[in-house]
Design a binder for these strands. Structure first.
Lengths: 205, 205
DNA sequence: CCAATTTACCTAACAGTGTTCGGTTTTGAG
DNA sequence: CTCAAAACCGAACACTGTTAGGTAAATTGG
């Protein structure tokens, strides 16, 4: 018999294997030895199903890094695990990026981040903005890295330094650059925030 | 008679007005008093058409800010105009984010950024990563801000500070926070980069 | 200026999509 | 064992992108 979790994981496997546009209700049903209409006893629409999958992916994100009051460490752990969760299912990055699955779980995570930042000394408004900014970075990096083929920037890099680009290694090269770019962006951003916080502390002294 | 530019601008108008999922070849044809099949004399596929539109949007992006050797100014101008270009067509953010229209034009822009950074003293590899990072920020911000409804972070903000949130103003509030978040992220990132560059200069002295 | 050819457009269709309706089968509770 | 509720299926609807083949219009060559 079908179950919500069975459908969900079959859909996830199908998308991971064959790509997002290969997921149709009929094909998914076929995968489960069932007719397409049967799926609608468990999910109201295909969008609902996708939202549920997005939610499952987001559940892997780790927001525990704020526990000891170190906001920088908290943000780093959060951002990296967020990115890793997206990288685990490249074909679903557009879906996850387009909307946070279940509101309730997304809210809980957002609240953990927000709370951690406030506990570490950030004003509430800044905490909100920092949470949003970090998400920008992670989602933007994921879309540019995982959700498409060659990156024009990497292409430029290759054209300018052809010695560095044995053609058969271009893909891993791109991955390496994407990784390094993300880490550079994250650390530069956090460095900058450090100075912002210092300036804020100076003001209110 | 139909023309490539006529089709493109009608499609853009249609998507701006009715949303991305309202763009079908038949509806677009109707808008142009023509049958759907006729469009295929001018565009090979719908994807081609979308790529062309994405390209048109990206053409508005300003990479001239690097002219005077000030990389920080160059990046700021680029990032802001990039974001503005996406904000001008919210319904198309997913399309533009998913791939840079025509390779050729995207390459030229990427090259301008890369060249500007190198001219300002950044090592080529860093220039590539900074270009990528900045794009991450812009695209991530655009997806989170324009391409969807309510943001969970803003929701948290509202729940915690209910006095600040007359419900009827929530949308503009979200826009304001998105704006501020983007500017915060950009300036913190650039600040951090400033220190990175100083450290690099120290090394190679 | 007419003839020939290319181009633009249309009608009709194909294969596929998400979703719904009505009916049948299976399941589990009383 | 009965009966109501839930799960499943077959068929259909209204759409989608795209193509084949035919007709009309515009453009080119003589």
């Amino acid at each position: 018999m079908l179950s919500v979790t069975g459908i969900r994981s079959a859909a996830l496997a199908l998308v991971d294997r064959d790509g997002l546009e290969s997921l149709s209700m009929r094909r998914l049903a076929q995968e489960l030895d069932v007719q397409a209409a049967s799926l609608y006893s468990h999910y109201r629409t295909k969008e609902d199903l996708l939202a549920d999958i997005a939610n499952e992916i987001m559940a892997e994100v780790d927001v525990s890094g704020f526990a000891y009051g170190d906001w920088r460490h908290g943000l780093t752990v959060w951002a990296r695990s967020f990115r890793a969760a997206l990288a685990a299912h490249p074909n679903l990055v557009p879906v996850v990026a387009a909307g946070p699955g279940r509101r309730e779980a997304a809210l809980r995570r957002a609240d953990a981040v927000h709370g951690g930042l406030v506990a570490a000394g950030w004003p509430p408004r800044h905490a909100t903005m920092i949470g949003a900014s970090t998400k920008y970075l992670v989602v933007g990096a994921a879309i540019n890295s995982f959700a498409r083929g060659f990156d024009a920037d990497v292409q430029v890099y290759r054209d300018r330094y052809p010695n560095l680009s044995q053609a058969h290694r271009l893909a891993e090269h791109a991955a390496e650059i994407d990784d390094a770019s993300f880490e550079l962006a994250l650390s530069a951003f956090l460095d900058g925030l450090g100075h912002t916080l210092a300036a804020l502390d100076g003001e209110t002294r």
